[in-house]
Each structure stands twice: as structure tokens, then as C-alpha cells.
Design a protein around this nucleic acid. Structure first.
Lengths: 89, 89
DNA sequence: TGTAGTGCTACACAATTCGTAGCGCAAGCT
DNA sequence: AGCTTGCGCTACGAATTGTGTAGCACTACA
């Protein structure tokens, strides 16, 4: 758990998983989806998430693995929470 | 959602919420629960999470708000995922 | 008047991230 | 062959963020 919290608590990590939840994206597409995050960090995060077996690089671009998609589902829950939460803020 | 992803994607943010999921903790107790993170960042994160209304400071220490606890529930789901995921790694 | 514990600040150092430029490569066109 | 276009990704100085340690101001209790 701590390993995961640590990995997800790095810049763009959660965002990358969120942006890939639907379909695979190319490096550049992912980058522009992530507010043009700097390519160095982006690539570093991709490598880390790949090491954690949460995503892989396919011919169609970067895509979540089956494990990554399980995590993606949790992010959808998080999104539901975010909407409920935004109203009360 | 982006606001939330950005806030949670900062060092110790997720960890703080995770450590507070059970009971309130004092500043120092929280600090030692978080691998003795440096007090400056810890305090900064606490201020940010307080601004987002996810936690408050009570007489018993720092505690999740009702919104924070809703998020805490999602972290428990994340923990279940983490355990399943750790086996496959 | 001391001692012990608290929340928290200060500050120099280290690590991380940003922003921009551009390399090397493959595909397609002329 | 040459030329362009788009790709994944690297390089690197500047800016931002986090670390580690010391210790202040305060309260409670002896």
C-alpha cells in the first residue's frame, strides 16, 4: 500500500492513469491531455507506472494493463466523489 | 476532478488521508506515521487539505471531515486493490 | 521554577519538476 | 535521392518543491 501511495503521490501519476482510462494515447496525445506536462517527467512517470505493471506501451500508444484498469475503475469512483464534493466547496 | 488529482498528487497528501482514516492524530503522531516526513511539508499539506475541506484540526488532533471520510472509504478500496495487485507483481 | 510535551517555523541543502530546444527515426510524398 | 511531417524521447538550465535538523513559543503539570 505504501509503495502504491508513494507512486501515485507523484506529479502526474494519477492524472496519467485518469487520461488513459478510456483509450490508449500516444505520448504526445497524452502529454497534451496532461496540460502539456514536461516530457521528461511524463516519460519518467510512464517508466515508473510500467515498472508497477499498471500500463504498457502498445502499437496504439500507452494503455492501461488489466491491473491498471482495475485502478481506473477506482478513479471513476473518485470522479463521482469529486463531483459531489465540488458542490459543497 | 483535475483540482483533486492535482492536490492528491503531491507528496504525502494521499498518505496523510490514509493515516487519518481510522482516528484523529496529533501533528507529531501523524508525522511519525508518515515516516517522519519533514514538518514543513506536512504542515503545508495539512493546510491545503484543510482548504479543500477534507480535514480539520480538532481538540483530538487532525481529523477527516465527513467529505474526507468519504474519500477515506475510497482509499480502503485502493488498499484492497493494492493487496490483490501486490501478489501479481 | 523547572521539566516535558505539543504544534509549528526557519533555513540551508537536496531532489524534483518545468520549459524549451532539438535529436534520431520512420512513413509518405515528389 | 531528397524533403517534409510527425513520432517517442533526451538534454539541460532555471524554477519549484521537499528534506533534515534545530529550536521557538506555548501549555500542563510537578
Amino acid at each position: 500500500m505504501m509503495v502504491l501511495l508513494d507512486a501515485l503521490g507523484r506529479r502526474w501519476a494519477l492524472r496519467i492513469l485518469w487520461e488513459l482510462r478510456g483509450a490508449p494515447l500516444s505520448f504526445r496525445a497524452l502529454r497534451s491531455a496532461c496540460d502539456d506536462a514536461s516530457p521528461s517527467v511524463l516519460n519518467q512517470r510512464l517508466a515508473e507506472l510500467r515498472d508497477l505493471a499498471l500500463l504498457t506501451s502498445t502499437e496504439e500508444g500507452y494503455a492501461l494493463t488489466s491491473e491498471g484498469q482495475r485502478l481506473g475503475v477506482l478513479l471513476v469512483d473518485l470522479d463521482r466523489f469529486a463531483q459531489h464534493w465540488a458542490k459543497k466547496l
